[in-house]
């Protein structure tokens, strides 16, 4: 309990002390989560939509792959990318090792399967016949895709929340790929890890409290957005 209270006190102190460096860590954390989620949406959304509405051979296997990606171990992603980013490795020429850009890439690799799997699942849950009816009336693939995204927006925002939540709190890939460099690519989660390693448990708790508050804030904003369109007079469904 004393760790928690000390953590709270220290968190407040770090927030209110100019030059404590915590705001730089918050900025990097938001940057990593924001860039990776955005990239995850840009890459994952079209794939998720294609898997959700498409009818092609191998779609089932791709869905299994995307769902398996939900359980992708961040540490494994971190190790594989670190090895690939070594100067002599195949992706070494990109110079992404121990860089913020490398962290973005690692987090994007983790975000993409989340967006793909949850988007495809949300689209497959759309009312029976809606997309088929669009096809029967001659809707283009683009029109069907736009309709699917619009209709499945609550599920897609859930995917966004999951991806951004992962981006804010993930630590394995960030530390391995970025090196956890203070003042450069250290995030709140990796800062907490570093403080625990240094035996500064109250400091780790302080960072953890800040991280939790940030997650709550971001997720609350996205959840508000998710259900914004559903406010207003409640729809009544009649029986017959």
């Amino acid at each position: 309990m004393s760790f928690f209270l000390e953590g709270l006190r220290q968190a407040w102190q770090e927030i209110t002390t100019p030059g404590s460096g915590i705001w730089q860590v918050v900025r990097v954390t938001l940057q990593v989560a924001g860039v990776s989620t955005l990239a995850g949406l840009v890459i994952g959304l079209p794939i998720g939509v294609a898997l959700g509405i498409g009818r092609f051979r191998g779609r089932g296997a791709l869905l299994v792959l995307a769902n398996a990606g939900l359980g992708l171990p961040p540490v494994l992603v971190g190790v594989v990318l670190t090895l690939l980013f070594f100067p002599e490795a195949p992706l070494g020429f990109l110079r992404l090792g121990f860089s913020l850009k490398g962290v973005y890439v690692a987090q994007t690799v983790l975000a993409v399967p989340v967006v793909v799997a949850l988007t495809a699942s949300a689209i497959r849950d759309l009312p029976v016949g809606l997309l088929d009816q669009g096809r029967a009336f001659g809707a283009s693939r683009l029109a069907l895709g736009v309709l699917a995204v619009r209709e499945a927006r609550i599920g897609i925002l859930a995917a966004t929340i999951a991806a951004i939540g992962g981006g804010l709190s993930e630590v394995g890939a960030v530390v391995l790929v970025g090196g956890n460099v203070v003042g450069y690519d250290q995030t709140l989660a990796s800062a907490a890890l570093q403080r625990v390693g240094a035996g500064d448990y109250a400091g780790a708790m302080a960072v953890g409290i800040l991280l939790l508050a940030l997650i709550l804030l971001v997720v609350a904003a996205l959840t508000w957005l998710q259900y914004a369109g559903r406010r207003g007079p409640r729809a009544t469904v009649r029986a017959s």
Partner: peptide
């Protein structure tokens, strides 16, 4: 040829917008 399938799948919008959507699909 336009086919009205058995399942009345409607988009989450107003009735008129649903009919207009069908007309958009139809060109």
């Amino acid at each position: 040829v336009a086919t009205v399938l058995q399942a009345p799948g409607l988009a989450r919008r107003t009735v008129r917008a649903n009919v207009e959507l069908a007309l958009a699909w139809w060109g």
